[in-house]
Nucleic acid binder design. Sequence first.
DNA 1: GTCTATAACTAGATAGAC
DNA 2: GTCTATCTAGTTATAGAC
Lengths: 204, 204
Amino acid sequence: MALSWATEEQASRSEQIRQMTIHLFHEKGYPATSIRAIAKNLDIKSSSLYYHFQSKQDLLFDVLDRIMDELIQGLQKSVAHGQTPEEKLVAAIRFHISFHTDHQAEAFISHSELRFLSAENFRRIAEKRKRYEEIFQQVLREGVEAGVFNVPDVKVASYAILLMCTGVSSWFAEKGRLGGEEVARIHEDLILRGILKTSKGGNR
Amino acid sequence: MALSWATEEQASRSEQIRQMTIHLFHEKGYPATSIRAIAKNLDIKSSSLYYHFQSKQDLLFDVLDRIMDELIQGLQKSVAHGQTPEEKLVAAIRFHISFHTDHQAEAFISHSELRFLSAENFRRIAEKRKRYEEIFQQVLREGVEAGVFNVPDVKVASYAILLMCTGVSSWFAEKGRLGGEEVARIHEDLILRGILKTSKGGNR
DNA sequence: GTCTATAACTAGATAGAC
DNA sequence: GTCTATCTAGTTATAGAC
């Protein structure tokens, strides 16, 4: 599945640059990826890249900002489909993991390259990351208030759940032993059994 | 707690270089950390650094290799203290989290800088990482065989547990709301409830 | 063990032609 | 929108003095 802004058959040059940037940032990271290398991979000269983006920092921000928008939009949409806190949580976990298996490069750099953002750009991305985490925390809180979740610390639990699933992008292999859906089911099971008040999570 | 090779009151120059390297790699990453910067922070010239290490790559490998040794040794020692699978798992989680809260920089770079190792150096570090993961997997397997753990996929479960706890180093703040022990307890609880066979019909 | 000096190279970014 | 050419500054690493 391609990201929504990349679904056009003929990707614009700006979009080609973004995709190549994501690929190379994933492979080598921001500092080790030169503007020249991005350009060379697209068969243009590095100076041409500056027609589309103001600076390397600008390109980093643009890429990360779009990934965050995609994440937030997708999570909101997924959670909205659930009725109960348990359904909402499962939907959230499923979305989070499928994003991390389907877009490994995007998911990886959305964490690893944060420290290369300028102070102001970091502030803007950190805000969106907080919005994303808060959706999870809200679902957990609803479950606690409804008396179905046993979560002593919503923030720590949300970090634990997010990081466990986020980590999938570091080991998941497209052609590995398990498919994305199996991986998602294992994680749902582990998490639900970890936080549900009854132990019905195990035999859903 | 300091790492064992750093307990001497007068750290050797090589050790000072390693500590500064860890600090700067954590802050900026390998490619963005210049040999000059490491040297400057120790009030020596960059050329002097080459007396102690052959190359920047050599320094990266040396630092990561020692971190892996410390992790493996510490985990083995912790697990050996437990009698039952459950005790062993709690000991393993406690060690893993305390390492990630007490040595945030070391823990962080032991993942983030892997991709900057040369092919041969990567192979050597990856082997040690595998050894570390296998200790966790062995404990989980013992629990399954003893009939106390409900873990449908030992590998995925080990990754989920490790990554959940590993992630602590990315958000844990020394002077934050929670101490390291509280964080560890919350994670132990979440994991144990997630995998313990507490009721019948837990299998899928 | 640390220094000065420097070689050989690569980086981000811009000017101006077409 | 892409090119050539170039500026300035930074990079790893080495040679050889002390």
